[in-house]
Nucleic acid binder design. Structure first.
Length: 581
RNA sequence: GGGCUCGUAGUGAAGCUGGCCUAUCACGCCUCCCUGUCACGGAGGAGAUCGCCGGUUCGAAUCCGGUCGGGCCCGCCA
């Protein structure tokens, strides 16, 4: 009967068979130790020369050889116990040892601290996955899925699969296209999200739908964004007209994941709802990390009479107070200045509070009453530095928002044991392009404008609010959702504001809008980015660390060599011309 | 598409203000020794045209330009 490594500790004086990989071999000439590793851990095998065949086989072992070993579990004498491993109190005296398979010398080291380049790890992912940390990740991920499924099913959601071969959706991300063999010149697209299908399920009478849905987007990746494919916990509820119902339905799950599942503390038990504009003004971003304060403080009024040109000529002046920042060296401040410039700032003005006075290259340009008003508004004390942003409002928010984040990292304010959650609500329905001045959808064209048809008639289109909400976890957007627009007339109008006629809408979204004409119930939902949320819960800052087989940053699977060229015959069958043409 | 950054034995690092680099160290690999190790130890050995191409120079891992590849970021991600 086969035993796992970790179980053998409970089987003293029993005969066991263990199977696994050679973690290490210590050959003392007349006595050979083998650390055998399986998914449960490591156990020490002892091979004596008296067991002639086993001893001979043990002599041939190398790292990562695969073996089956049978023998008797013995308690080690006190001085031989190893407190560093869970099975260190026992060892297995081996009678029989079979080499099941051999391994070439490893291209990457899989134990120890020094990790190979990520690209090499991905090429040899099957070896990388043998590392205990990766084994733990895989197991934990399965548990994570189970927790989510259990919760949503308790809430009455039922899982329904939606098509993978779907339709191109021109308004969103770049599609992955699949040429149709049967219909020459036509294409399927892999779904960017099951958005339209899940809304159709609502029309189809499903009260609550969920799916651990694969989503496909051909956009350049980031550290927190996979290339190509990722998973969402996708949900939709019918007869819901208030997004609050969706938010309050899902909150307990996320809290449970943060606490019971990930073993962290919640920053606040009540999850704040922060309007988009407030988030932008207070944190300079719509995905604020709320584990720390350092909020943006408006100083435009305080400094409206200033004669300091940089502030005087700016549309907006704001600042953040960085506690204890006076320890920063000049060159460190310079590097933060570079960051500010990279976000569009002209420079980075600051006031240092030290020894009861203000030190700064700009202090002499400010009147004493201005300096004291700033100090008071910022709540600055000795040891702090106040950093300013003075520019167009949008630029100031962006620069200070970025700096807030960078300073928090620098001063270790991001406590990994805390999860800070927030709902960002009331997104603008439309946004204006900086350069072209053209209006476009801010978020999701399928969400309901607050106030419905009447609101869309408003003169100020930028003031129209979408019933749309995101959940933010420690500075990462982990969920996006909305109350959907289930009214065909309102939906046509939403596009009409941008100059798109009915024909346009019918052509692109005909499947869905047609359905809405046959008694669509009001509905709302959301989708959680499973991979990204898991990354945050597992304390990783690279999303590829928590995926078994991710593509690299160029969208290449370096292990399987995809994408790859295909035969001309295949292309011909799909009515696709080869690249040479 | 753009910006920044990295590329040195199988792996991870050092060297990189040009010459003493005939490129250093650790892990791994090979041979031999070793009966209580646990990342065993000991002796010896192999293994690198310093990503690639070009330039500057008496001389380039080192400086410059280009190129390829990785990473991070911007754009993009309804």
């Amino acid at each position: 009967m086969r035993s796992f490594a970790s179980d053998t500790v409970h089987k003293i004086n029993q005969t066991v068979t263990v199977k696994g990989w050679v973690n290490s071999r210590r050959d003392h000439g007349g006595l050979i130790f083998v650390d055998l590793r399986d998914h449960t851990g490591v156990v020490q095998l002892v091979v004596q020369p008296e067991q002639v065949d086993a001893f001979k086989a043990a002599g041939e072992l190398r790292d990562e050889y695969v073996l089956a070993a049978a023998g008797t579990v013995r308690e080690r004498s006190e001085e031989l116990k190893n407190p560093h491993i869970p099975t260190g109190t026992i060892e297995i005296n081996i009678d029989q040892l079979t080499i099941l398979n051999r391994s070439q010398p490893l291209p990457i080291q899989i134990h120890g601290e020094a990790l190979a380049n990520e690209d090499l790890r991905l090429k040899y992912r099957f070896l990388d996955l043998r590392r205990p940390k990766m084994q733990h990740m895989l197991k934990k991920r399965a548990e994570y899925y189970a927790v989510m499924r259990r919760y949503v099913e308790q809430q009455g959601f039922i899982e329904i699969a939606t098509p993978i071969l779907a339709n191109s959706s021109p308004e969103g991300a770049r599609d992955f296209l699949i040429p149709s063999r049967v219909h020459s010149g036509k294409f399927y697209a892999l779904p960017q999200a099951p958005q339209q299908f899940k809304q159709l399920l609502m029309v189809g009478g499903v009260p609550r739908y969920y799916q651990l849905a694969a989503c496909f987007r051909d956009e350049d990746p980031r550290a927190d964004r996979l290339y190509g494919e990722f998973y969402q916990l996708d949900l939709e509820m019918s007869f819901v007209e208030d997004g609050e119902e969706v938010r309050s339905t899902m909150e307990p799950l996320i809290k449970q994941l943060a606490t019971d599942f990930a073993g962290k503390r919640l920053m606040t038990d009540t999850i704040p709802r922060i309007p988009y504009r407030e988030a932008m003004e207070t944190y300079g971003t719509d995905k604020p990390d709320l584990r720390f304060g350092m909020e943006l403080v408006e100083l435009t009024e305080v400094l409206k009479a200033t004669e300091f040109g940089v502030f005087k000529n700016a549309e907006c002046v704001k600042a953040i107070c960085v506690k204890g920042a006076s320890t920063l060296s000049r060159s460190q401040i310079d590097s933060f200045t570079d960051i500010a410039k990279s976000e569009g700032a002209g420079g980075l003005a600051y006031l240092t509070y030290e020894g009861g006075e203000v030190k700064s290259p700009i202090a002499k340009f400010l009147k004493p009453e201005e300096l004291s008003a700033i100090k008071q508004a910022m709540g600055a004390a000795d040891g702090d530095i106040v950093f300013f942003g003075a520019d167009k409002r949008q630029v100031v928010n962006k620069v200070l928002g970025r700096l807030r984040n960078e300073f928090a990292t620098h001063f270790n304010l991001k406590d990994p044991n805390i999860i800070a959650l927030a709902w960002i609500v009331d997104f603008p329905f439309y946004e204006q392009d900086d350069k072209t001045g053209k209006l476009d959808f801010g978020h999701n064209p399928f969400s309901m404008p607050k106030g419905g048809l009447a609101a869309l008639q408003a003169e100020d289109k930028l003031g129209i609010i979408a019933d749309q909400y995101d959940m933010v976890m420690n500075g990462y957007e982990i969920c996006s959702g909305g109350v959907r627009n289930h009214n065909p007339e309102v939906l046509y109008e939403v596009f009409s504001v941008l100059g798109f006629g009915r024909n346009y809408v019918d052509a692109r979204f005909g499947g869905m809008i047609n359905a809405f004409k046959y008694g669509a119930p009001p509905h709302a939902g959301c989708a959680f980015g499973i991979d990204r949320m898991f990354m945050v819960l597992m304390d990783e800052d690279n999303i590829r660390e928590i995926v078994a087989f991710p593509k690299n940053g160029s969208g290449v699977d370096v292990m399987m060599n995809s994408p790859s060229v295909v035969d001309d015959a295949q292309l011909k069958e799909l009515h696709v011309r080869s690249v040479e043409d």
